[in-house]
Structures are given as C-alpha cells and as structure tokens.
Simulated scan of single mutants.
Amino acid sequence: MTHKTIQPEGWAPALGYANGMLTKDGTLHIGGQIGWNKDKVFESKEFIPQMRQALVNIVDIVVASGGKPSDVVRLTWFVTDKATYVANQRAVGAAYREVFGKHFPAMSMLVVAGLVEDDALVEIEATAQLH
C-alpha cells in the first residue's frame, strides 16, 4: 500500500474526496478544511469561528493519523474577504494559538472569489510530516 485514507472517527463521510491521505513515507496531505463541524454543519457564519473550526478539523485529521499539531509543516489558506481577515488580525492570532499553540509552519494565503460551500468564509489545506 502506498497511501492510506484518513477519516477521523465519527465524522460524516467525505464524498468524492479524502480528508487526509497518508503516504508510506509519513507525509500527510490534508484536503481543504472549512469551518463546519464533523457533521458538516456550520455552527457560525462569522470568520473567526469558522477559521478556528477549520484549524481544529486539521488537527483532528493529524491526530487520527497518529500525529500531533506540531507535525504540520505547511498551511495554505483561502479566504473570501481580505478586509475581514486584516481587520481581525489579533483575533486570528488568538484563535490560531488556541489550536496550534506557538507552532508556526510555512504558510500561504490566497484571497478567492468564493468557495464551493456558499457559507464557507475560509478553507485551509495542510501538509504534515509524521515521524
């Protein structure tokens, strides 16, 4: 087997995609996570709670793979509203640290016109290297 599909226990099924793919060398590729919970329900229509939930989802996938948050080596963020992100920098940092502590992997951010799920304000994909 060259890779293993990662789906955290209790999560609604991923249809047409994988939440995570773990390769035999320990690289975990995490598909874009949005601000909905394990049941694919948005608990908030606000940016910060959605961002925090997307990060929690990433950590849940890493943990389901046998890793820990500090194994994440890359995050790519897609946001629909640059002004909202910029205006909330302090809250972004606080929510980020709640989930990842002081672990800051390589990151990129792109501003996009929209995401597939209409209620999604942010999508974050990740790569982790498990030891």
Rank of each mutant, 00 (worst) to 15 (best):
N19P: 12
D71C: 07
K68G: 05
Q7V: 10
T27L: 01
A14L: 03
L28A: 03
W36V: 09
A126C: 11
K4F: 10
V116Q: 08
A113Y: 03
A120C: 12
L55D: 02
A113F: 04
T5C: 04
I124Q: 05
A18K: 12
A87S: 10
A95N: 06
F104V: 06
T5I: 12
H131T: 11
S65P: 00
V73G: 01
N37K: 10
D39W: 11
G35L: 03
P69T: 05
L28S: 00
Q50Y: 03
Y96A: 02
E125W: 00
N37I: 09
R97H: 13
N19H: 11
K45T: 09
M109E: 07
D60G: 06
R74L: 12
D81V: 13
W11F: 14
N57W: 02
A128I: 04
V112R: 08
A126K: 03
G67T: 08
A95M: 10
P8H: 13
A54Q: 05
A12R: 08
W36G: 09
F104R: 08
P8A: 15
T80S: 06
G31W: 01
D118G: 07
E9N: 13
T76P: 06
E125C: 10
F78Q: 15
I48T: 05
L15C: 12
V56Q: 09
W11M: 14
Q89G: 11
M21K: 11
L22N: 02
A128S: 08
Q53T: 07
S65Q: 05
G16E: 05
T27I: 03
I30K: 01
T23N: 11
D60I: 07
Y96Q: 03
I124H: 09
I58E: 00
S44E: 06
K102H: 09
A120Q: 04
D60V: 06
R74G: 04
D118P: 06
D118C: 03
Q50R: 03
V112D: 01
G20Y: 02
V116I: 14
Q7W: 06
P8G: 09
K45N: 12
V41F: 07
R52Q: 14
M1N: 10
H3I: 00
P69W: 15
R74D: 10
M107E: 15
L115H: 01
T27M: 01
A113V: 13
R52G: 03
S65V: 07
N88Q: 15
E125I: 03
T84R: 05
A87H: 06
A94T: 14
P13D: 14
K40R: 13
L55S: 06
G66Q: 03
V92R: 04
I124K: 05
E98W: 04
R74T: 00
A113S: 15
A126V: 08
M1H: 09
H131A: 15
T84D: 13
E123R: 12
Q89M: 14
V56A: 04
M107D: 14
P13K: 08
W77A: 15
Q129V: 02
V112S: 05
A120F: 00
V41T: 12
V73W: 01
W77E: 15
K82Q: 15
L110A: 15
H29M: 00
W36N: 14
Q33M: 12
T2D: 15
